[in-house]
Amino acid sequence: MQRDNTYFLIFHTIHDVLRVEKILKKQGFTFELVPVPRNLSSDCGSCIKLNDNIEDVKPYIQNIEIDKCVLFDGVNYKEASGRPWK
């Protein structure tokens, strides 16, 4: 995986964002809570900016319904086709 690869995990509610935050914190993943990038969603809330590999994270959070999972390679945003889980 490239160093500057980042995932934006967008959920329906702040409740779900915080559920994910709690889990990622417990598991020691590298992430940040950031405002949802305007080009990804018109939502006015927060999302998870993940600096770890999505495949490592997935097993811990796949029972939480996700809205969008977007890969940012430093230049372009690429949305995972379909819903990555649930």
């Binding site: 509610t13 702040i14 409740h15 964002v17 915080l18 559920r19 709690k22 809570l33 950031v34 405002p35 949802v36 006015c44 809330g45 927060s46």
Partner: peptide
């Protein structure tokens, strides 16, 4: 204001609600 603005105080307020819930 919880879950609205994406800044630290908004997120902290949302965490208060999350924890209580």
């Amino acid at each position: 204001n919880p879950g609205r603005s994406g800044h630290t105080l908004s997120i902290e307020a949302a965490r208060t609600i999350f924890e209580a819930r």
